[in-house]
Design a protein around this nucleic acid. Structure first.
Lengths: 227, 227
DNA sequence: CCTGAAACCTACTCGTCCGTAGGTAGAAGG
DNA sequence: CCTTCTACCTACGGACGAGTAGGTTTCAGG
């Protein structure tokens, strides 16, 4: 049963210029790269709201105003599109933060870095949601894509710790702590939207800075209670 | 076409005592509550690895050594089981942390709280994974179930801030920052497993304590650079 | 006007998975 | 031995979603 009924394709209306059905004018064709971009936008939108598993390619297609095969043509499949979306976002945040901490004293860099991240959270909430969500193959190990960011920050910290004479083995703790702080507060901020991000960044930077600055060479436990 | 072939059910082997096929002995029947418990265990296991969307009820059934309808009998469905699993875990962590911070001075409570959480991460990695993952209806607002914990900690902080004369509006920032720190570091620890949790807790508590203790009444930004 | 390639479509196939219908097996009490 | 209640099962219905086959429309360049 191949091609059972004869009217394949989209004839739109009966004859070329007829406006009988008042059908909305078909959107103009896009170039490959333009269509790619529009699909990425739609994908980011849907992935951010539904999460990877729960999004259907069809919903993305619908939002991008194309049919499914177009997506498969451009990205090979759901996972391919997801990979591109994630990569773009990751690249964007890292670039922004890198710019922010390129110069200045330690504390200034800390505050500017936090502010850069929170600005991203504010201006690109969908991207942030995707990065904060689980990766597709959750079993692998990463809870969120942002773990990667934690590693990068930890590397920076390791260098600084060594230079300052602290125990370098503790650096990843502080690196991940910082990223976790900013991420979680950023997440909260998206719902609260209360103090402006500049203020939030200042608080976070103060917390982290004071905590780091006053750190003893080897932190000592306060000791466990009797109970 | 109802009951097409006559051999419904499980006859096991031909006659009662025959051991011809060497079939493994059927597991004994369990009471309703015991079966419930075993299903909850299986559910936690699978949900933790696959995430909510990607887990199939059948995989849970298989792991619990029962057939699907048993799960539907006990929990009404996938979402019902998930709700029970999450509720149990949430209850467990909150209880542990509450016990840990029930007495002692501020800093001691801080360190004991962090240690309690990290102990949970270490001893109940599956539960932690579930709490750190997305909720089913991701669109609602919560990134992770732990946001709820952030709110609770924020409430504690708000009270303390008021008492100490700090700006109470900033309390949620510090509350969420603390939870984010511990969560993210805990996540990292599950893969690194390097410094013992007691040491990690000490570091985190030191960071948070020093940061909080030396906090000015109103943190001032370091100011933006010229660039 | 013609041609060919690029963009785009409809209409499937195939697999998976939630949830259920309707039955069997075993234990406790008469 | 018979009844009955509870635990448990096999087998399906129905929906949905990833990915594909094979066609049609538009447009640039001759």
């Amino acid at each position: 049963m191949v091609s059972a009924n004869g009217h394949h394709g989209d004839q739109r209306d009966g004859s070329r210029g007829a406006k009988l059905a008042a059908m909305p004018p078909r959107a103009p064709r896009l170039s490959a790269s333009a269509r790619r971009a529009s699909i990425i936008d739609a994908g980011r939108f849907v992935f951010a709201r539904r999460g990877y598993e729960a999004t259907s390619v069809e919903e993305i297609a619908e939002r991008a105003k194309v049919s499914k095969p177009v997506i498969y043509e451009h990205f090979g499949g759901k996972e391919g599109l997801y990979a591109v979306v994630v990569d773009r976002e990751m690249d964007y945040v890292v670039r922004r933060i890198s710019e922010a901490i390129a110069q200045g004293g330690p504390r200034e860099r800390l505050e500017q870095g936090a502010l850069a991240f929170l600005t991203y959270v504010k201006d690109h909430p969908d991207g942030f949601a995707i990065l904060a969500h689980d990766a597709p193959a959750a079993g692998g190990g990463m809870l969120s894509l942002l773990s990667d960011l934690g590693v990068r920050v930890s590397e920076v910290f390791t260098a600084s710790f060594k230079a300052a004479g602290y125990d370098a083995r503790a650096a990843p703790i502080y690196g991940h702590a910082l990223v976790g702080m900013v991420t979680f507060v950023g997440q909260w901020w998206t719902t609260a939207r209360k103090p402006p991000i500049e203020e939030v960044a200042t608080h976070i930077a103060a917390l982290a800075w004071m905590g780091l600055r006053r750190l003893p060479k080897r932190p000592t436990s306060i000791g466990k209670r009797a109970g």
